[in-house]
Amino acid sequence: MSLFRIARSKNEILAHEWMSLRMLWNATKEESKISEERKNLNENTLCEDEVKRIDALFPEVAIWQSGAQEWHDLNTATQEVGRRLLRSQLKTEFPILLALAQQRKLANYDVHAQNATLFSESSADALSQMRAAYLALLDDLQRWFINTRFNRSLRREVAERLLSIGVWVAVIAIAPFIVFFYMFYNNSQMNKAAVGVANGYQLFSSNPVFGLAMVAAFGLLGAYFSRVVMFQGQIATLGFDDVMTSYQALLLYVRLLVGMIGAIVFYFLLRSEIIAGSAFPDLSKLGIGEQVVWKVTAANGVAPVADGTPDPSGLTILMPTIDLAKLLVWSFLAGFSERLVSDTLTQTSAQTNR
C-alpha cells in the first residue's frame, strides 16, 4: 500500500478527539492534587486506583481507525472522564456541548438548554446536578452520532444492494435485444431480398416471444428505476424502518416481480385492444430494422445527389421502430407506476359492469 493511501485511510478526527480528552483528563488530575482548594470547593479528590483505572482507558498510541469499537472506546472514556470533571471544567464544557446540540438539531435540545441555569450555582448539591446535566447531554449527543453512523451504514448497504440488483436488471433488459439482433442478422443474411425495416417486422411477428420478453424486461427495468428514484429522494432521511419496509432484498425482488407482471398485463391489454389510441403502439408494426446512414455535408446537412435524393453512405444501423419504442416506453411505465395497470383494470372493470 502506498504512503498516499495509508494517509488517506487514517481518521484524524478520532485521533484528535482522543488527544483533546487526554488533555482534559490531565487537567482534571492536576487540579485534583490541590486537595485543600478542592476541599473548599466541596469537591472530592481522586484516589490513586481511580486515576489508574481511567488512565488505562486511554490508548498507548494514537487511534486512526474509525470503526464501531474505536468509537465505543472513546465514548466510554469520555463518560468516565465527564463524571469527574471539576466545576470550572463543567462550566466550560457544557456550553460547548450545548452549542453542538443546537447545531445538530437535537430533538430534546430545549430540555438541556433549561439545565444551563444550574451552572451559575456554587453549592455542593449544584456540582452533582451540573455533572448529571453534563452527562445527560453528552449521552444524548453520543447517541445521536451513533444513530447517524448507523443510518449512514444503512444507506451504503442499500446503495450496494441496489447497484448489484441493477446490474442484473440491466443485463436482463439488454438480453432480448442482443438475441433479437443476432437472429435479425442471421435472417438478413439468409434472405437478402428482404432487407430494411420490413425484415424486422417479419422476424418480430414470426417470433412473438421477443415482444413478450422485451415487455417483461422493461417492466422489470421500470420497477427497479422506481426504487432507485425513491432511494435518491429519501437518502438524506433514510432510516431503519424505511430499509425494513422498502429495501430488503426480498421486498425488492417482489417489487421487481410486480413491475414485470404489470408490464405483461399491460401488453395483453394492448393486444386485446381494450386500450388503444395514437399514443399506444400498433402491435403489427413492432420490429427492429436496418436504417440507412446518409452522407452529410460540412454544414451537417444531408448531401443530395444529382436528382435531389439523399446520398446513402453505405452504412446501416439497427433501430427500433416507433411502435416498438412506444411499447417499451409503456412497458417501462407499467413497471414504474404501481397504479397504472391497477387503475386501468379498475376502469375497464367499471365499464363492463355498466
Rank of each mutant, 00 (worst) to 15 (best):
L86K: 12
R339E: 15
N147R: 10
S128P: 02
V215M: 06
W25E: 08
K10G: 01
E160Y: 08
T344E: 14
A334F: 09
I288W: 03
F204P: 00
D282A: 06
S128N: 13
R87N: 06
R22I: 05
T28H: 12
T245C: 03
S337N: 10
N187S: 13
A107Q: 14
E36Q: 11
A236M: 15
Q234L: 11
Q351A: 09
S284L: 06
A27H: 14
Y201Q: 06
S164D: 15
S206V: 00
Y247R: 03
R156Y: 11
S66F: 10
F177S: 07
F177K: 10
A126V: 00
C47Y: 15
S20W: 12
T245M: 09
A279W: 15
G239Y: 03
V158Q: 01
Q129G: 04
G259K: 02
C47M: 15
K91Y: 07
F218D: 01
L269I: 06
Y185C: 06
S32C: 10
Y201S: 00
L21P: 06
Y182S: 12
I54R: 05
T352Y: 14
R83W: 04
L333R: 09
E37R: 11
A27E: 13
A223L: 05
L97Q: 13
I54W: 06
A194K: 10
L21D: 09
F332L: 12
I63L: 13
A350P: 03
F94E: 05
E37T: 07
V302K: 15
S35P: 04
E12G: 11
A279C: 11
H16L: 11
L106H: 03
S20D: 15
T92K: 14
A193G: 09
A175S: 04
L328Y: 07
N75K: 04
E93T: 05
D241W: 06
M230T: 06
Q69C: 07
T28P: 03
T309Q: 12
F280P: 00
V265W: 08
D139T: 15
F240K: 13
K10I: 04
A132N: 13
A223I: 00
A279H: 15
S120K: 14
K33Y: 06
F225N: 07
M183N: 09
G308D: 07
N300F: 00
